[in-house]
Amino acid sequence: MKASAMKAVWSLVLLAFVSLIPLSAQAVIESYQFDTAEQKLLYQKMARELRCVVCQNQNILESTAPLAQDLRQQLYQMVRYQNADEKQIVDFMVQRYGDFVLYRPPLQANTLILWIAPFLLLLFSVYWVVSYVRQTQVDAQKEKHDD
């Protein structure tokens, strides 16, 4: 494809994306009522941990996008009327929007490195410090002998 054609395609795609969001500013703050404190906590936790997939980088609690509003509504329905637990909510969202929707990456094959690398790195670093310090002592001993 020629560069100009490519460009035209991209501007079309971009234009299409811009039109994804109707330009009416919607409510951010809904006064949802809950039956129990647990429900409210679960709602707040999940709304914070779910990504608004059309936004730049915002969770659905803080986003003003219409899709985020729909997802809040859905989340509220699930928490209050369907008595859904965290796993059910996560499954519902992942089924539709993929892992991308989760701010807490699930522990699975492609996130193994993400979750364990910090701990491996910490263990290795402690080992490195101890062996480095030991080595300085050994080396210093050697130098003394050499002299």
């Binding site: 990504r51 991308f100 929707v101 990456p105 996130t111």
Partner: peptide, 11 residues
């Protein structure tokens, strides 16, 4: 090419 995901505050 191993997937698309988000890493956010919980991590």
């Amino acid at each position: 090419g191993m997937g698309k995901l988000s890493v956010g505050p919980p991590y």
